[in-house]
Nucleic acid binder design. Structure first.
Lengths: 339, 339
DNA sequence: GTGAAAGCGCTAACAC
DNA sequence: GTGTTAGCGCTTTCAC
């Protein structure tokens, strides 16, 4: 069914209609609908409920929002909903929000700073009660939100950021765990496929990789930088294979990159983990179904999403800004040489 | 930044403040902000713009929505945003909506009928201007939307449905193409891994598979039914392998199932396409990065999303309900035996 | 070209 | 327990 070419005459049933039909005042209807703030006699309540049902009354959220100054809505900004990590994150945020009666505006920034800013502005204009931002930057511009006094939290953000509530994982520690595992397998030349960020900022996964190497007394392996995507990983994989000191193992900063590397490896006729071991980061389901299944550092996406929403509009609302770090877990599968 | 424990005193700058500051009436501010419906003298306009900038004025969307009866918002209901097919669809719908100045409420039904209905109701209460529904059912219950006179379109819907605008692909034809290709490779025993729907309704992909077999004078191959997921595909794959008349090729009704089948095949030490050829449906990016890359029937997701949004709130709004079928394309890769 | 004012549907303080 | 009513911020008709 599509909308009529000419807008139909406003046929909306209002609170007033219900009141008239039930023979009460509009206030009473409000009390019934909202369960307060005043008590209503059971008999009256029944009359009102009947009227509501009969008339098919549905409260107008816009009017309510105008009056209350709250839309029961939050906004989410992610780089790319078609990236498995973010789509899972979005799903989890939606669940957490719905749990609290909040609806979720989904916006993609496509790794584009201007678009991210536009989305922030747009959400602010729509009077959302909060925004969850998985930014392309370490230090996003939140002035529009601040001006509108809209709380925000930085999700999938691994650095403490003064004055902001942030939730993420310890990237360095996660990366270190994965690389240490590769070291444990006996590898002495471990390469890094590192994702690049829009802001060209450093990434702690690189530090973790380096630290693990140092701790093991190993030389720094080759690095290939590329996008946090399958295509990016594919290119990085090819470069790593062609490098003068070809590694025997690779740590990839995301599962998507590892998937790309896997393709490069397969095309080169190399076996994994025999000719090249692999470990990555994120814990996407896709990594469990690659061949071989990827050993990866899992991020507790649902927990992080819940924490973000709770800090924004749930129980933790109003608590002082802080950096919440969630634990990662090394999912040991076969690409590393286990099993 | 989190919200203050005690709601700050409403500090919002309103149209009235701007008017006072600029020394004009509130009507003029409206004219300037909306570029109409009346003309404003350039000098006045400048004064108003200055005031807006200085005061940091931002229009209140809720008030506007209340007045206009339109929220410039659409709702999307999909089964699962962490399924690559739907996450891409959601991204595309968001893009199409944003293009038209509409924001997108994302909701997941998790393949759950009750949840789908709850989401519909919730979106209706929020006065969305339209809803795009990728239902778990062939014949979803849209009464809440109809009662609220909210237009809707059924997306990723392959059956004509009287009175509804629907957009989808010809599943039977797509499946037929894939199976015909498998036949062309010389296979005579082609199994089917068929996804099951919540409503237990038939799926035209099955018809397409059967038709291709019949047209080629082939006997009906074995069928394994399971969920439209990786896990489902994995189980289906195992069953197909164990079946009395094990096929030499499988057509899977979704890429996710094929990914699962691939795992079952690998675990069984079978080579693809050597020991078992494979083709599937959807055209997810993940299918391009599996090993071997999957031959799959691509759905034009972006085109479908755009068509849905356009029919809802864009140029095609108000056109009579119709069933829009988009063409699929066989993406020939290696799992079928090519290359 | 500009302004005054009605009213969108709702909540809740206040009066009874 | 129930009713009256004043706005929330905005758009737009109608008068000037």
């Amino acid at each position: 069914m599509t909308s009529p070419a000419v807008p139909a005459p406003r046929t909306q049933v209002t609170r007033k209609d219900v009141a008239r039909y039930a023979g009460v005042s509009t206030a009473v209807v409000s009390y019934v609908v909202n369960g307060g703030p005043k008590k209503v006699a059971p008999a009256t309540e029944a009359k009102v409920q009947d009227a509501i049902r009969l008339l098919g009354y549905r409260p107008n959220a816009a009017a309510r929002a105008l009056k209350l100054g709250s839309t029961e809505t939050i906004g989410l900004i992610i780089p790319d909903n078609s990236n498995p990590f973010f789509s899972l994150l979005a799903h989890a945020v939606e669940d957490a929000a719905a749990e609290l009666g909040f609806a979720l505006f989904l916006t993609n920034s496509d790794g584009n700073l201007a678009k991210e800013r536009r989305n922030i502005r747009n959400l602010a204009a729509r009077q959302v009660d909060g925004v969850v931002l998985a930014s392309v930057l370490l230090d996003p511009d939140l002035t529009d939100l601040e001006a509108a006094e809209i709380p925000s939290v930085l999700l999938s953000h691994s650095e403490r950021s003064a004055g902001f509530t942030t939730v993420g994982v310890d990237l360095a520690e996660g990366a270190r765990k994965a690389v240490e595992h590769l070291v444990w397998h006996g590898h002495t030349n471990i390469g890094l496929a590192m994702g690049t960020t829009t802001g060209n900022e450093g990434d702690a996964r690189e530090d973790g990789w380096l630290q693990a190497l140092k701790d093991a007394g190993l030389a720094e392996g080759p690095i290939a930088r590329s996008e946090f995507t399958r295509v990016g990983g594919y290119a990085a994989g090819q470069r790593l294979l062609a490098s003068a000191n070809r590694p025997t193992a690779i740590f990839a900063s995301s599962d998507m990159q590892a998937i790309g590397i896997l393709r490069a490896l397969h095309e080169a006729g190399l076996s994994v983990p025999g000719d090249m071991a692999l470990a990555s980061f994120d814990g996407a389901v896709e990594a469990e179904y690659s061949w071989p299944p990827l050993t990866t550092v899992e991020q507790p996406v649902r927990d992080m999403a819940e924490a973000a929403v709770r800090a924004l509009v749930g129980a933790d609302r109003g608590e002082p800004a802080r950096h919440r770090v969630f634990p990662t877990r090394l999912l040991v599968r076969q690409s590393c040489g286990c099993g």
